[in-house]
Design a protein around this nucleic acid. Sequence first.
DNA 1: TATAATAATTGTAACAATTACAAAAGTGTA
DNA 2: TACACTTTTGTAATTGTTACAATTATTATA
Lengths: 137, 137
Amino acid sequence: MNAITFENLERELKNKKINLSHQRLKILEYLIENQTHPTVDQIYTDLQIDMPTLSKTTVYNTLKLLVKADLVKVITIEDNEARYDINIENHGHIKCESCGTIYDFNIDTDSLISSDLEDFKIDEKSVYFKGICPRCR
Amino acid sequence: MNAITFENLERELKNKKINLSHQRLKILEYLIENQTHPTVDQIYTDLQIDMPTLSKTTVYNTLKLLVKADLVKVITIEDNEARYDINIENHGHIKCESCGTIYDFNIDTDSLISSDLEDFKIDEKSVYFKGICPRCR
DNA sequence: TATAATAATTGTAACAATTACAAAAGTGTA
DNA sequence: TACACTTTTGTAATTGTTACAATTATTATA
Ligand SMILES: [Mn+2]
Ligand SMILES: [Mn+2]
Ligand SMILES: [Zn+2]
Ligand SMILES: [Zn+2]
């Protein structure tokens, strides 16, 4: 429930010794303002308007860095492109197969368990649905 | 729990008017005998030994056909390659980040619900975990 | 401040997974 | 056999991602 703020992020970044360059800041801002699970291409295309020198490699590098630092999550609901989410709290994702929108939904992934996994160390849990959203029905 | 048999599959294929060519048969056999969630490349590389003329396009085409007919499921646990599963019963998948193996585990995906999705039509539910398997710990 | 060391960004090339497409081969029917 | 139809094949094109070396920016040091 606690909102994502620059202050919290800045503290986390300092903890993890990640330098907040101009490009990284812009990418983080973008993720905070556009919580629509954007692709690399969407992030790049939109930011590139105001930062003509931005390189797509920087977008890739930064996202990889943020994911490794557990500040951003990759969503692999579709096999052809990764999507990124600054909201790292437990929640599920559903993709509307008509309009392509990926919606968040509330689900307690922590409570998902299986006796088959007793001897596993579990690091990450993802719940992906596909269907048709209310607007498209 | 009911095992995947050629008989069941053949009936389904007839229902859906999918012609069972030599290539399609071999790919189906492979998926039944190798329930390790193989990639297209693994399927192609292995089958190509006994079928030197096999084309990778045919593997792609056949898998797409089988997925559309709901006889095979795509697993997008990793963003860089699709994996295929002939076991279409509800179950979860966990990928060991050390050895790369994708294990099945028992979980009732049908019972996964969220009040946020009341107005959605839900067609597919996937549960993906990542972690370390008992052998690698 | 100047200099050196380090970190981050950029642009391009390489790579890998997938799709498009047209020609060739196979299948069934009259 | 001739014809229509389906499937397969091989290649080229496309797309998302990574590798890498050169350039630029930042930080530490003298
Ligand atoms: Mn989300
Ligand atoms: Mn499985
Ligand atoms: Zn929709
Ligand atoms: Zn393992």
